[in-house]
Design a protein around this nucleic acid. Structure first.
Lengths: 254, 254
DNA sequence: ATGGGCGTTGCGCATACTGCAACGTGATGG
DNA sequence: CCATCACGTTGCAGTATGCGCAACGCCCAT
């Protein structure tokens, strides 16, 4: 690898600790001042480093801009898809991916069950927001005030006898989901269908998407479905890691 | 400046647009593939670049971590102080700097008036949150739900006849402040004291602090104070630019 | 089978980076 | 008030270091 670049990049974590002047940078790099100066100049031209008027250097605005731009251009679906397919191949049931957008939860990807019995859902279609596992996961991560405001606005249709009936019960359920880090929908939308879901998180820990596995009673019981939970959570975590740009753990290739 | 580092850093904005493979990077840099490979490897070792399993490169987790760390280590007060002093020297009145923290607005810096008449305020002391100009500026930037939740919780003491009396009036005032980008307190806290304030924003546009200029009626009338508004706003903008690591505009050295 | 596209490696050459020493400047203190 | 120091900056000569080339291995598609 490149020595020059290596040295230059070593400056960044150093400046992350706090502002430093030329001498300090040169010392900690173990190079001559003039060398450090040239490196800092280059970093400066790219905006990664900012020079304050006491001449000391700190990290620059470009760093934020880059991180932000990268996040905006990140496509959860693209990253998640191979993982979802792999999971589907392993367990056979329908797998969903959903995001929260403007007070709605939308399916953005789906891998169909291998079994003949299928369920009604369509990519781009809003989710039954008061009962679906993915909806619970996404809403559970909202700031408390927003969560409460949204809960007040919602209708709570009784799709089945096990649907969540009102805002109070809903907020309580969200608290549980937030606590445990996974969610279920056991016959709350369609009497005979159960779901288990897990959240996908970005680099900052915020939930950016949620995935779920759905199966009808006739194929597996709710209890059997729940035994798949560790697998689902591991898949979601693997997607989270890859989405946030961290190296994948061993043995977790999709 | 350094050619190698220059090339390496040029890769970052390129990858911010989206994932790219080795060939694309080499082409856009105008260098041989082997060169691009070495640069990418170095970036990779520092975690700034992440390799997904289709072999393409994207920005890595370290970049996000650095950006976040940089934000945390930013000290608004340190950056703002010389600007506040310069403003005080120019206009003579008391200048305040305040931030929002855990449902409170706190003074974190103050430059005393040159005039004998002073006002009561202390660094670290919570601000009269329902009337102070700085409080309005900071609260006006909160997410709508949080703003409303906070307004409901607050008391609205009638310091003077012009104090804001209730949550409704307060939220309306915040909407105005949010709209116009500056705020006043005309005798709302102490009958004879007026304030004008402006927000200080970070790189992402969020309000990170607010500053204000205060003066008693006996020195300048409210109308006279308002003529200083452009100056205050320009100072706040200069601080914002420096805080977010952008180069200062000409003729705006503190 | 066979070709093309891709990432990777080893190597010789010269470019571009390094460290030194000297200079300018602004602050400190005797 | 000048001396001294500390710090950033500049020009330069030597060479370490990064460069492009060409060849290799691999996988996929034809």
């Amino acid at each position: 690898m490149s020595q020059t670049v290596d040295r230059a990049l070593s400056i960044l974590p150093l400046l992350a600790e706090g502002p430093a002047d030329l001498g300090q940078v040169a010392d900690r790099l173990g190079v001559h001042k003039s060398t450090a100066l040239r490196l800092l100049r280059t970093l400066h031209e790219h905006g990664l480093v900012h020079r304050q008027q006491d001449q000391r250097y700190r990290l620059g605005a470009r760093l934020f801009a880059l991180a932000q731009e990268a996040v905006e251009n990140l496509d959860v679906r693209e990253i998640a898809h191979p993982h979802l397919v792999a999971l589907n191949e392993q367990i056979g049931h329908t797998v969903h991916l959903a995001v929260y957008e403007e007070s709605e939860v939308l399916y953005i990807d789906k891998v169909e069950s291998r079994y003949p019995v299928r369920m009604y859902s369509r990519i781009g279609k809003p989710v039954a927001i008061t009962v679906a596992a993915v909806a619970k996961l996404l809403l559970a991560d909202l700031p408390e005030a927003e969560r409460r405001a949204l809960a007040e606005k919602l209708d709570f249709p009784m799709y089945t006898s096990r649907s969540i009936p009102n805002a109070g019960a809903f907020l309580k359920e969200l608290a549980t989901v937030r606590e445990q880090g996974w969610a279920t929908d056991l016959g709350g939308h369609e009497e005979s269908i159960n779901c288990i879901g897990a959240p996908i998180r970005g680099a900052d820990g915020r939930v950016v998407a949620a995935m779920s596995v759905s199966a009808p009673n006739v194929v597996v019981t709710a209890d059997e479905l729940l035994t798949l939970l560790p697998l689902v959570r591991r898949t979601a975590d693997a997607i989270s890691r890859e989405y946030s740009g961290q190296p994948p753990r061993q043995e977790e290739r999709p």
